[in-house]
Computed example of a mutant assay.
Amino acid sequence: MSGSGTYREEELLSEYGHEFAEYLYHTPSEFERQGGLWVIRSGRNLAKPNYEVGPKVIECFSVHAVVSGSILFDYGEGTVHLNQGDLFCLYPGLRYSYRITAGEKQLRLYWLACQGSHAEPLFARIGFSREEPYVRDRWLPSHESEMDRIHELLRTEGGSRYEVQLLSRMYRVFDALGAAPTEASSSSTIADWLARAILYMDTHYTEGIDVADAVKVAGVHRSRFYQACSRQLGISPMQYLIKLRMEKSCELLVDGQLNMQAVALSVGYPDIYAFSRAFSKYYGMAPSHYQAAFGD
């Protein structure tokens, strides 16, 4: 677990029978209970292969994010397979259970449980309902940062500003989840972020960028970026970056003004060996053979 670098402050995760997890519990003050929303508990985990919760019911509202991996979520009379980026909601009194998908090796979850008169309306704004308590492709890396700030407050609760800060952070999380892009977004909105990311790759492909950098520019979940980019370009984002580098390298090889090492560095590869392997795999011949055949 420590080698993955997945969690910040990873040492705060404790080992349990079916997971490594951090559970943070909160007892709301009278001031908090006078408002419309307050925290009951929050946390995060890294599941073991035998991970399973329930069947059970709870007496509060709880939103769970599948940060990585996949689960099977049983709710009421339904069952749904949820993947990285999906959210599910536990409603008060609604019987539920969930478990890691068979063969899954890296299931991570974040959760936030709350009560108050604003809880159910806020969950509805995200897209949850008692009949369909889940939404697809909603969790973004920025949401993890917002949740981490809530966790920091829960670990060190106290002080005159604590209650207001915690309340503010909770509403920020719900606002972010409710405003996140969905598959129902307009085509013009999709075109904006996708065009921005493709332009980024077109502009910076020689600088050693990778797909993760383009995902950050797009501002959407990695899986959504892959799907939209592949539909638009006809190839995956990684294949598109390779295509740009290979086409440019051919121009430079034919031009003949740079040696092989300079060509490699000019198209974003760290050395001639990495470039030669990529070129040979892409064109079926070594770059030196290509230059001999097509160069001046």
Score class of each variant (00 low, 15 high):
2 S>T: 11
2 S>C: 02
4 S>Q: 14
4 S>A: 12
10 E>K: 04
10 E>L: 02
11 E>K: 08
12 L>F: 08
13 L>P: 07
15 E>C: 09
16 Y>D: 14
17 G>L: 07
18 H>I: 01
20 F>T: 04
21 A>Y: 05
21 A>M: 09
30 E>F: 00
32 E>L: 13
35 G>R: 07
36 G>F: 01
37 L>K: 01
43 G>V: 06
48 K>N: 04
50 N>H: 05
53 V>D: 04
54 G>A: 04
64 H>K: 09
65 A>D: 08
65 A>T: 05
66 V>R: 02
68 S>R: 08
73 F>R: 02
74 D>Y: 11
77 E>H: 00
78 G>W: 02
82 L>V: 11
84 Q>A: 15
85 G>T: 08
85 G>E: 09
87 L>R: 07
95 R>N: 12
96 Y>G: 07
101 T>W: 06
102 A>D: 14
111 W>E: 13
111 W>C: 11
115 Q>E: 14
124 A>S: 15
124 A>W: 02
129 S>K: 00
135 V>M: 02
136 R>K: 14
139 W>N: 03
140 L>S: 05
140 L>Q: 05
142 S>H: 02
143 H>T: 00
143 H>C: 02
147 M>V: 04
154 L>I: 11
155 R>V: 08
159 G>N: 00
162 Y>D: 14
169 R>I: 00
169 R>F: 12
171 Y>A: 00
172 R>Y: 01
173 V>H: 01
174 F>K: 01
175 D>K: 05
179 A>C: 12
180 A>D: 12
181 P>R: 09
181 P>F: 05
181 P>Q: 06
188 S>W: 07
190 I>V: 14
195 A>G: 15
200 Y>V: 10
202 D>V: 04
206 T>I: 12
209 I>G: 06
217 V>T: 14
225 F>S: 06
226 Y>F: 13
231 R>F: 06
235 I>Q: 12
237 P>A: 10
237 P>R: 09
256 G>N: 01
256 G>A: 08
256 G>Q: 02
258 L>Y: 07
258 L>S: 03
259 N>V: 10
259 N>S: 12
261 Q>P: 00
266 S>Y: 03
274 A>T: 10
274 A>N: 03
274 A>V: 07
276 S>F: 06
278 A>R: 03
286 A>P: 10
293 A>S: 15
